[in-house]
């Protein structure tokens, strides 16, 4: 689900949006979707895609996109925010290969040692089970491995930069916190209420630098909705009292509720009368 781009080259992959403009004609179904998250603290950049300035003064913590792009390879260069063009990139150029029908997020972030890097993640847009939502947690911070606690239980263990973990959960609210692997406190992030939204992939990024003083560790969120699955059917009768065929309900069950019994008797008589 993940492909490294260029370790050691920073904010790269702020790819993006070379934009449909640079791509050949393609139907929407053949397009790839690309979002870009800037997770390098303290660095404002310009992003060039296929030589075109695509994101101007892009700031940390910002999420750009999603953009519909024809499948293909996009070349991305990242420069200081006052550059005139992409001839002297601070990062890159890197090539992003985007496949038709896929949904990507390119993240410029710090690696575990605090050096700028970039990672291209593929977002899970498969249909969720009815009544469930999806949580994706991505570790893109200069920090050691972490556990994610829901309440006091570790639901994710030893997640390391730049890995991700995907969980499908019943829709609802989960109180979650991020701690160093093997600990329960102190919380590096949270606790915070996380909305497990039905039919939605809620992608949480732990980004920043835990070694900075003060720590710049922070949370960023991306939401991809419309992934819901429908109930498999509607079973809306329990007893058989109104059966078209006059089938007699099963008496032992009916004994459980007096009101039901009396109704069942009526039904039984009707059935008998019909014979």
């Amino acid at each position: 689900m993940r492909a490294r781009l260029l370790a050691g080259t920073a904010a790269a992959s702020l790819a993006l949006a070379a934009v449909a403009a640079t791509a050949g004609p393609a139907s929407a179904a053949d397009d790839a979707k690309l979002s870009v998250l800037h997770g390098v603290p303290g660095l404002t950049v310009d992003v060039y895609v296929n030589g075109k300035l695509t994101l101007d003064d892009f700031q940390p913590g910002k999420l750009a996109g999603p953009l519909d792009l024809a499948a293909g390879t996009y070349t991305v260069a990242i420069t200081a925010s006052d550059a005139k063009d992409d001839s002297d990139p601070a990062i890159g150029p890197v090539d992003l290969e985007l496949a038709a029908g896929k949904n990507y997020t390119a993240v410029a972030h710090l690696d575990g040692s605090g050096d700028p890097t970039a990672t291209l993640f593929t977002n899970d847009t498969s249909t969720t089970a009815p009544g469930e939502g999806r949580i994706t947690v991505r570790h893109v911070a200069a920090a050691p491995g972490v556990d994610v606690l829901a309440g006091s239980d570790a639901v994710i263990s030893n997640l390391e930069n730049p890995d991700e973990k995907v969980l499908d959960l019943p829709a609802g609210t989960v109180s979650a916190s991020v701690v160093a692997t093997g600990t329960t406190e102190p919380a590096l992030l949270g606790p915070a209420d996380v909305d497990v939204a039905e039919g939605t992939n809620t992608i949480l990024y732990a980004w920043g630098d835990a070694t900075a003083d003060p720590s710049t560790l922070a949370l960023a969120t991306q939401v991809i909705d419309g992934l819901h699955g429908n109930p498999s059917g509607v079973q809306a009768g329990q007893v058989g009292l109104v059966s078209d065929s006059g089938t007699t309900p099963v008496w032992p069950y009916a004994l459980g509720a007096l009101g039901v019994v009396s109704l069942a008797v009526v039904n039984r008589r009707r059935a008998d009368a019909g014979r």
Binding site: A20, K52, G61, K62, L63, G65, A220
Partner: peptide, 11 residues
């Protein structure tokens, strides 16, 4: 010219 890219604050 590229379409305007929507940008939001992910934090």
């Amino acid at each position: 010219v590229p379409a305007r890219v929507p940008v939001r604050d992910a934090t």
